[in-house]
Design a protein around this nucleic acid. Structure first.
Lengths: 181, 181
DNA sequence: CCGTAATTTCAGTAAAGAGTGAAACATGTG
DNA sequence: CACATGTTTCACTCTTTACTGAAATTACGG
């Protein structure tokens, strides 16, 4: 299966962006391909379209499945698995953020908690202890907020984002009296 | 200069996290060290403390300076540059998000705009065009929201995050009448 | 339950990225 | 302005990560 020019560039760019955010390039490209595709694709088709090894596709799809970014479907009269992804960018975003929260933020929080309870803490200066505490506080607040946001439907989430300006004016108004330049 | 146990583990963990988010490990470690340090550090001290090459420290500091995550200060009677970073996690977070917005999100938006204006677009199926458009819309809304959030003081930002739950209830209330389980 | 098609695993290879250290370059001091 | 101190550059090496392809495994149909 051949890619049209824009599709190809979209997929390449997506792979590049993935790489910058710590996602394997092949994984990101395959996901982009599934996102653009009008129908579910078999692993073979993916390998051929992106010119990567069949085994690479297999591993990458496994990764996407583990993130719940891809799911398996079947076609009448075809024994092969076919793969598809959500066509809703907002939903995809939610899944990715949720995944990184669980896999990266949560462990960091655990480590910080451990530090702050450690007996070794008395070897640190008060400033260091304060900054580690401040870091934990930051991650806790951010995590709680993300958790709340992720519970929303994509549509609601979009409204919240669009309301951003109003909300921050409101908050500023209630906490500072002077007009900000 | 020797690291105390917790400081060392904090720095190692931070380097690890940086690596997962597309930041060079040395850069992240140096930043963590500056964050924890009670005083500005000279490049030599950093190299010795983290056991990395002096040249590596030089390059990494340059990177941190370009991100505005470090700045140069001077000590009376010492010709060497000393480096420090903000001790405010919220401010650091803002700087990082702003940087990635400019360096990664903005170019992506430019590419998507280019795609949607390209004459090659007629070779794509309607579904593909729709999804590229939806992607652009998503990035635009998210970017606008981030821009708005970044204009806030850390303190205000924190209040907004803590209000997260209320805000989403409010929005949900105004858009859907039925109570959500 | 045998044979075939599809998939996955994994050891090895290739590519990318990070880190080093010698040498060049600055900067400032006596 | 020469020397010393401090900094940066860059070609090379080392490490890590990604990718491949052959072989093993699994799943299915007759």
């Amino acid at each position: 299966m051949n890619l049209t020019p824009i599709s190809e560039r979209f997929i390449l760019h997506w792979g590049e962006m993935g790489a910058r955010w710590g996602v394997n390039r092949s994984v990101a490209q395959i996901h982009a391909l599934l996102f653009l595709s009008d129908r579910p694709l078999a692993a073979d088709e993916i390998a051929e379209t992106l010119s990567v090894a069949r085994s690479n596709v297999s591993m990458s799809l496994k990764e996407l499945l583990s993130w719940r970014l891809a799911k398996i479907t079947h076609q009448m009269g075809d024994r092969r698995d076919h793969f598809e992804t959500s066509k809703d960018v907002w939903e995809l975003f939610k899944i990715i953020v949720e995944g990184r929260k669980q896999r990266e933020v949560a462990p960091t929080l655990a480590v910080l908690n451990e530090f702050l309870e450690s007996t070794d803490l008395d070897q640190e200066t008060p400033g260091v202890v304060a900054r580690i505490g401040q870091t934990r506080e930051f991650i806790q607040v951010l995590t709680a907020w993300i958790t709340e946001m992720l519970r929303q439907e994509p549509e609601t989430l979009m409204k919240i984002l669009k309301m951003g300006a109003k909300v921050s004016n409101l908050v500023r108004g209630t906490t500072e009296e002077k007009a900000q330049q």
